[in-house]
């Protein structure tokens, strides 16, 4: 029976695997030399037998097998040399592996801390029946302000120092435009959260950045009430921060009425007052409120029939608190020494 290339290569590979296996258990230089002699040894080495098969192959197969043969030979010799080096280094002979030595590692990837916080928030709201909506970062002025009941020439605009685009439009100052886009696209009941980047003409300092992540939330249906708003957000706070006290207090946003802000008890002083919470015992987490009827109407939703609530919060600042990061600017440096800390 003639020898095929395939058979021969298979045999060669099997021989290589067997030899590597022997090498792995050769725990003395003597044992190693025995393996060397029986495998790649010039006189007794079994590898020679494979070379001897070469003439039996069809002419066209010869270079293929030749290349394969050489590759195996080089691999085995290198493996034997490496084993020799290892055994020599670990005198006295017969030393076992020191299992305390470090493993061979892979690079470990990590999500950005703001993403980690965002995903945690998303997970909690997913359990509360919310889906994720998105929208563009370059927006029409109407979606960012007009539809959200911002009166023109009103001091409320001062809370949104805006970056405008030269050819019209702006960089959204909050994720609230997604409220309008979603309401225009889907009928109630609606329960969505909308994560995304927002922009303010704020110069960098320890707690401000010109771009930062925000997460919006909105629930619209018949009979949605302030109690639903409070209950959902307090439930969120208890899951995100662990069992915690929450406080709702009046605030102002043109697109909600009543408007509120939710604080949680300061984790650092447990409510006693410290520098972090400006001695108040409370830390502000999010702004929220019942959706203003004008906002529902601007998206074509009947505000007599439907009501809703909405909130917005800043995962970037929450990440500062959660991980004890002293300065928001660190989040944008993308320094490996920072990011690798999140590769847990």
């Amino acid at each position: 029976m003639s020898t095929t290339l395939a058979d021969l290569v298979a045999q060669l590979d099997a021989f290589r695997d067997a030899t590597l296996a022997q090498l792995a258990v050769a725990d003395s230089l003597d044992a190693l030399e025995a393996v060397r002699a029986s495998s790649v040894g010039r006189t007794r080495g079994a590898l020679n037998d494979y070379k001897a098969q070469l003439p039996k192959l069809a002419g066209a197969d010869k270079p293929t097998f030749g290349a394969r043969f050489n590759a195996v030979k080089v691999e085995l010799e290198a493996a034997i040399d490496a084993r020799h080096a290892a055994l020599s280094a670990s005198a006295p002979a017969a030393a076992a592996l020191d299992l305390s030595m470090p493993a061979r590692r892979q690079w470990r990837g990590a999500k950005h801390p703001v993403t980690i916080v965002l995903e945690e928030i998303e997970g909690i709201f997913r359990d509360l029946g919310f889906t994720i909506a998105t929208g563009p970062e370059a927006e029409h002025e109407w979606y960012n302000f007009g539809a959200l009941n911002f009166p023109p020439d009103h001091p409320a605009m001062d809370m949104h120092d805006t970056l405008y685009l030269e050819r019209g439009g702006l960089l959204r100052t909050h994720t609230s435009p997604v409220q309008i886009r979603t309401l225009q696209s889907y009928p109630p009941p609606i329960r969505i959260i909308a994560p995304g980047n927002v922009f303010r003409r704020d110069f960098f300092d320890a707690s401000h950045a010109p771009m930062f992540a925000q997460i919006e939330g909105m629930a619209v249906d018949e009979g949605i009430s302030f109690v639903d708003l409070k209950a959902t957000l307090a439930n969120f706070a208890n899951r995100f921060f662990g069992e915690t006290k929450t406080r709702f207090r009046p605030s102002f946003f043109p697109f909600t009425e009543p408007s509120a802000e939710m604080d949680v008890a300061c984790r650092i002083c447990n409510g006693a007052g410290c520098a972090t919470c400006k001695q108040t015992g409370w830390v502000e987490i999010l702004g929220c409120g019942m959706m203003h009827p004008a906002v529902l109407e601007s998206a074509g939703v009947d505000s007599q029939k439907y009501s809703g609530w909405a909130f917005g919060m800043g995962p970037a600042r929450m990440a500062l608190q959660r991980f004890g990061i002293p300065d928001i600017r660190i989040q944008y440096d993308s320094d490996i020494a920072f990011l690798e800390q999140f590769a847990q």
Binding site: F130, P189, R191, F226, N235, R247
Partner: peptide
């Protein structure tokens, strides 16, 4: 606000499932 926001209940009440699918982008 004059009654006090915190005087209102934090009771989680039943809700209807929303109609919005997850954004393909997300």
């Amino acid at each position: 606000r004059l009654r006090g926001y915190d005087s209102f209940s934090n009771e989680l009440r039943p809700f209807r499932r929303g109609t919005v699918p997850n954004s393909p982008l997300a």
